[in-house]
Write a protein that binds this DNA or RNA. Sequence first.
DNA 1: CAATAATGCTCCATCGATTGAGCAAACTTG
DNA 2: CAAGTTTGCTCAATCGATGGAGCATTATTG
Lengths: 349, 349
Amino acid sequence: MGAETGDSPRRPTIYDLAQIAGTSPSAVSAVLNGTWKKRRISEKLARRISQIAEEQGYAVNLQASMLRRERSKVVGMIVPKYDNRYFGAIAERFETMARARGLFPVITCTRRDPELEFEAARELVSFQAECLISTGTTDPDRISDFCAAAGVRTINLDLPGTRAPSVVSDNFGGARDLTRLILERMRSEFGAADPLLFVGGRAADNNTSERLRGFLEAHREMGLACPPELRIVAGYAPGKTEAALERIALPERLGIFVNSTISLEGVVHWMKRGDRAAPRLLRFGCFDWDPFAALLPENVGMTEQDVDGMLDVVFGMIEAWPESPRRIEVPCILRPIPAPAAPAQAQPG
Amino acid sequence: MGAETGDSPRRPTIYDLAQIAGTSPSAVSAVLNGTWKKRRISEKLARRISQIAEEQGYAVNLQASMLRRERSKVVGMIVPKYDNRYFGAIAERFETMARARGLFPVITCTRRDPELEFEAARELVSFQAECLISTGTTDPDRISDFCAAAGVRTINLDLPGTRAPSVVSDNFGGARDLTRLILERMRSEFGAADPLLFVGGRAADNNTSERLRGFLEAHREMGLACPPELRIVAGYAPGKTEAALERIALPERLGIFVNSTISLEGVVHWMKRGDRAAPRLLRFGCFDWDPFAALLPENVGMTEQDVDGMLDVVFGMIEAWPESPRRIEVPCILRPIPAPAAPAQAQPG
DNA sequence: CAATAATGCTCCATCGATTGAGCAAACTTG
DNA sequence: CAAGTTTGCTCAATCGATGGAGCATTATTG
């Protein structure tokens, strides 16, 4: 605490502390960065220096320190958005885990802008990041190549890249299980299961195509054909999703597989508008979890991506770098939502 | 592009580029940081150096650069969580605005841990941050004092501090307007308005006490008494909120003022549990906005805090530092949610 | 008590970029 | 064409922390 008030025009350096303590900058440095035992500084001097540092409100100049050190301990991350439960959770967990390992997390949010993504990667390289985790970037390989040339390791999270190890959700399995759940609930609640509508995502997006594959697999298992006109893959944005829903003719009884909470915003907005003929019997499930979306009455289940599990794998890779670019799939967590207690409906048994 | 593959053990420096270009490191530096015109480097040499830098995949060492420069252009921010629409939006907007101004945003998430908050502040000071925005911290004044001693300016966002300028929502006005809305909707939908239940927040928290003041003011305006047992101020956490709701006796007809989306998670979880006697006629409003919470049928309105407006003020302060620690209130945006089209109810007129 | 070892420090080169000062060559002016 | 100016560049000190090398003291050993 303490610290001289007002009259200190610049922050104290180890040279200032050395002068006050009547010792050398090396000794101060050694004490403050914890190497003083190795450098045979007496405990007495160490204590005195520490106290003076405290009094003067000293904080190391990380620029100078990092410039000199061989390791920066900086780990960078690029996320497309913060304003979203999934990426928010990723960013938060990444910071916590990095800190727990004595690393220095630096996160940048690039709003799915390819140029900004690349600039952010360059910036993190300039920061001497030891490795860079890129999440949901539009062109992961370009970033991997640039980083590789600069000697910075990259890991792709939540998207597969060919130039770097990737940690992704088991999109196929997660989507298959969610599709099964929706179909079963259609059957148990409405008496029959028709093919579902798939909504949201981009065709070029690997996550979307894997989820579509799982979606189709579940239909096949149940002997259901799945016509292509029931797949709306025109982007994640809520507005696009809503517009696409308006354009197609919908049956009286409908189940929807929603590809992300972002698209779900469009779906529910469409649902709540009373001005058009919507299906009377509607259920949906969504790939991604959100606490409030989980409470919407038509929602039968959400697929939570295992953020902690994925980041465990990521940090495993940071610590023990894999020989070859591997791709690791982490299972998703299916969160079924029980049907609301039906007030006037007989239960069998 | 380009860049030698594989065989480059370390990143090129300006010395390497100078050697390749057959010129001096000063010239390279001037060209790459844009001061070459001022330093009278010919355009021809500038172009050659730029091209070599590109070919070599050069990226400036920010540690070295920042160490030497007088200004770091780093602006730091501390947020309690990313995993939340409100703080997520703040972080995202802060990054975007900082970048647009040529500043270097560094954001840290401290999960409402006072020690971590202080460590993060120290870390940002060590990063030579020129100023530090602290959002939702538990002890803003401690951080302000530490930063002041280090010559780093601080701004409190979303919470008032006594030691630094503060930018806060108009919690009083926002809460008063939201309370009015809930009371009006109770009257129009249920025929009468009783005093509301206030749920969530901490008594020591300035935001909570201001919102309570607005809540009481709206009741007073409408001639309603507001008994203290209808105020549950036992923390934001969903679990605590839910537990508190279970303990009290509730009327048949109830309106709730929920103090944040975090507490709202507890409220809706309690609402959806069918195993206890809940009010039959229930409406709530919530201070904070969330797209899915906005769709819950009992929700009559949400108070969106004007993130863009607050950050405009923050960056105004960063650019033109106010003489004395001022406190600026930014109005909230009330987002009423229309009542669902009542299927069997006559409209007057 | 001399030789050796251990202790407790300090000296100084270094990391990479920046920038004030300065210098040579080319150009302008009277 | 001498004196002054402009152009185009290089030199070298500097930012603050780090850590290998080295140098006095003090303790230990034969």
